[in-house]
Design a protein around this nucleic acid. Structure first.
Lengths: 226, 226
DNA sequence: CTAGTGCGGAGCGTTTCGCTCCGCAAGGGG
DNA sequence: CCCCTTGCGGAGCGAAACGCTCCGCACTAG
């Protein structure tokens, strides 16, 4: 358990390795958001300012890296949901969750759906996260602050829809850093508009039936054939 | 000008060529939506059930095909905006425009932003489209049915955000056709939620400043250097 | 100085890309 | 009947990008 000693006492090389690991995960998320499923390891390593060799010393394959990224992201989701539940006001709690998840930049994960094999650990984390979000939504429904015709899946799909920001991704890819602040502001406004649409008030009923959970889960299954 | 004679009088081969052209444009849009910027000509031709040779007889290069796709899509935008203006009720007119544009599946165009050179003709179409949408938004503002703190750019960004549907794209890519109907329904609900958030009512003010037009235009400029 | 550790990136073999080129099927006129 | 035109499909080219391996080097401890 020597690896649990405080950073200051660790060998300097190990501290560097840890910084590299964090940089890699962050870079992987950013590159995935911009390049989608075709993101390359070279691009990820370059973005993290880390050699390709170091990447492959830490992760056996590209798929391994993505799986680990997915795992830590699910941890963040769960944390955000629990933080939301800790807020007394039901609406504020739900809004906190939405904002927190959008801050992670979750749109990155969608492109790898169906391309990697899921570990049981990941399935478990996903289940626990879903439970927490369901509790958040139920509480908001019970308090009458979330429109009654919006289901849990509606809320999750809305988050996913807002999570992928083509604007931010492309400006980032083109190095237009001077516009990134304005783009983030614009995105915050869209989030606020969407949340206003979710609030219970004199809204007309939503069209169609409430969507089912399989919409969310289906694409993570591996297409083995065709 | 013999090529302007009605289709019925054209040689059967020319009619086939015209069908192929339409199939190619539709396929290009779909493949772009799924594969993003890395969409390949082979995938487009296969999806259109057309030989690669036919594609290259019609379009000199891949970029040519994308430019033409962009051009006809801008035509559709303009048409939708004018149809919206033709509706008396200002809110219904705006909502019609949003729904019509989303039905085109516009998310496909974002990935090619900045990767192709824009022709003056395209810039002109874009300008005319923007004018029409601005008129729609102004009318809705004047009638007090659109929240006052939502700007033209907010509306356009919201449309873009809703246009790219990771859910629909991925289910389509994986051939889960049995879920496509449910996904389209789910997307219609999200659109309705967002539109409710845009309506003028007791909404709290939006955060930050109204975004500027450069957010929208910047990424279409070609990055020649870096 | 030597030994050990962990770094960066050149480069391997493979895959995928944009695009060219050519053989072929299907009418229409002689 | 043949031949000639028209437009089709797709094999295959050189080039580029891919995932990953492997090795020379910088740095620190003793």
């Amino acid at each position: 358990m020597s690896w649990m000693t405080p950073p200051a006492r660790r060998a300097p090389r190990q501290a560097e390795a840890e910084r590299n690991d964090r940089a890699l995960l962050r870079a992987a998320k950013e590159v995935l958001a911009v390049d989608g499923a075709h993101a390359s390891v070279a691009a990820i390593a370059a973005r993290a300012k880390v050699g390709i060799g170091s990447l492959y010393r830490r992760y056996r394959t590209k798929e391994d890296l993505f799986r680990h990224l997915l795992s830590v992201t699910l941890d963040q989701y769960l944390e955000a949901a629990e933080a939301g539940l800790a807020i007394e006001d039901p609406w504020e709690g739900l809004a906190h969750y939405v904002h927190a998840v959008l801050d992670f930049g979750p749109g990155s994960l969608a492109p790898i759906a169906g391309t990697i094999a899921l570990s049981p650990e990941i399935e478990e984390k996903n289940r626990k996260g879903d439970e927490a979000v369901a509790a958040l939504v139920d509480r908001a429904h019970a308090a009458g602050v979330l429109r009654a015709d919006a289901s849990l899946i509606d809320v999750e799909l809305l988050i996913e829809q807002l999570g992928k920001s083509p604007l931010l991704d492309q400006l980032g890819a083109q190095g237009r850093t001077e516009l990134l602040g304005a783009a983030a502001n614009a995105r915050a406004r869209l989030t606020a508009i969407a949340l206003d649409g979710l609030r219970a008030q004199g809204n007309p009923p939503l069209p169609g039936e409430a969507p089912g959970y399989e919409l969310f889960s289906a694409r993570w299954e591996r297409p083995e054939d065709d």
